[in-house]
Simulated assay, not measured.
Amino acid sequence: MLPFTTYAAYTDSWMRFTRAYGEMSLHAAEVIAHRTFQMATGTMSAPEAIGMVMEKATAFAVATERAALVAARGGDVMNIASEALKPYGAKTRSNVRRLRG
Rank of each mutant, 00 (worst) to 15 (best):
S13I: 00
G101V: 07
T64P: 01
R16H: 10
T6E: 11
G22D: 00
A59V: 05
E23H: 09
S94F: 04
T43C: 06
H27Q: 07
T58R: 10
L85I: 01
T41N: 12
G101K: 10
T41S: 15
T18C: 05
F60V: 13
P47G: 05
A71R: 10
A57F: 12
A57E: 09
D76V: 04
A81W: 02
H27A: 14
A20L: 07
E55F: 02
A81V: 04
M15A: 14
M39G: 00
M39C: 07
R35V: 02
K86H: 07
K86G: 00
T64K: 13
R19Y: 13
L69Y: 08
A81C: 13
S25Q: 08
K91E: 02
A81L: 15
S82P: 00
E55R: 08
T58M: 13
R66N: 12
N95F: 03
F4Y: 08
A29M: 15
A67K: 02
T11G: 12
D76P: 02
T43S: 13
A8E: 09
K91R: 13
A29V: 05
G51T: 04
R66I: 00
T92E: 11
E48I: 03
G51E: 04
F17L: 14
M44K: 03
V62L: 15
A90Q: 09
S45W: 00
A8W: 11
P3A: 08
L2N: 11
L26A: 13
G51L: 04
G75M: 06
E65G: 12
G42A: 08
T41L: 05
A28W: 01
A81K: 06
Y88I: 03
R66H: 09
M44E: 14
A90N: 10
V31D: 00
A57C: 08
A59Y: 01
I80D: 00
T43N: 06
T43D: 05
P87Q: 04
F17W: 09
S45I: 03
L99C: 05
G51N: 08
A49C: 10
S13F: 04
T6N: 04
T64I: 04
A68D: 09
Y10Q: 11
S94N: 09
I80V: 15
L85V: 01
L69S: 15
D12C: 10
I50K: 10
Y88H: 06
F60I: 14
G101L: 13
R93M: 09
L26Y: 09
T92S: 11
A59M: 06
H34R: 13
A67M: 13
S94H: 07
R100C: 04
T58D: 11
T18H: 07
W14S: 07
M15K: 11
A33R: 14
Q38I: 02
G22L: 03
R19F: 10
G75R: 05
R100V: 03
Q38D: 15
V62K: 07
G74W: 14
